[in-house]
Design a protein around this nucleic acid. Sequence first.
DNA 1: TATTAAATAGGAATTATTCCTAATTAGAAA
DNA 2: TTTCTAATTAGGAATAATTCCTATTTAATA
Lengths: 149, 149
Amino acid sequence: MSLEIIKTKLKEAGMKITPQRIAVLQALTGNKHHPTADDLIKTIWKVHSNISAGTVYHILNTLVSKKVIGKIETADNVVRYDPNMEKHHHLYLSDKHEIVDFFDDKLNGIIMDYLTKNNELDNINIEDVKIQIIGKVRKPQTGTSKYDK
Amino acid sequence: MSLEIIKTKLKEAGMKITPQRIAVLQALTGNKHHPTADDLIKTIWKVHSNISAGTVYHILNTLVSKKVIGKIETADNVVRYDPNMEKHHHLYLSDKHEIVDFFDDKLNGIIMDYLTKNNELDNINIEDVKIQIIGKVRKPQTGTSKYDK
DNA sequence: TATTAAATAGGAATTATTCCTAATTAGAAA
DNA sequence: TTTCTAATTAGGAATAATTCCTATTTAATA
């Protein structure tokens, strides 16, 4: 994510543009995976050794509350952050403890259709549906999957 | 859950039957919601003030690893426990910060069918699919929903 | 460039959880 | 029933993640 886009995102969220916030977003969007706060702090300190850990936590919370980034809860209960705010789901590779984004608009549609027809949920205003697929890469084919390293 | 059922569950899991384990399972199954470890410790201490907190954590971890109970990750990132091991999903009432069980075998089938046909997941051995529905009870009808108090 | 509310640094405090070790105990075997 | 032993527990210390506190700094506005 370019510096300009980062600045635009911060402005759109009504947040002041600070070097600390830029550093957090750069560290987060430069990362293909879904880093923890601690991962981000370490990444940031390689370049800006003077940014305080408390500030990183604070910035992450603000970014989540302003919906600039996402926060995900994993099977092993570690808080991770997600730069991608487009609607998507997560595939947990249970053997590798890795999270992969999974985009599928059609699936969203199927589930929403089904749920809105469900009597039990008549009185519920559905805001979001999240799907977590837990699985492993099949062994015999190791090395051929797009999810392999 | 009766004492006899609790004892049977522990035996089936290959676990010794101890008063501490019985207390944890009684506290967990007597609770309609999805308590945190701390909730359970407080509940247990009302009756057995001598059971150590560390022991409760240890027992909960053992029960989860033996699949006697479930562990759920919530939006506010607190670990909660679930006595029900039947396949089910969770409805998060975002205004009440409450979790409600949601059983729907048909939905499971629809999703599994769809996913197994998805090329992207060809190399993934799907172990489980969890759905989190996030929503609110509709306001005008408050008092008429089965999810209302 | 002056002003001020917002943001940050740095460290202490808090919270949830795990770890450690000695003492106890459940269940198997005699 | 009693004995034995590995498993379990108590109690508290240690750890890890996160929040809180307060003085200082700074970004954006006028």
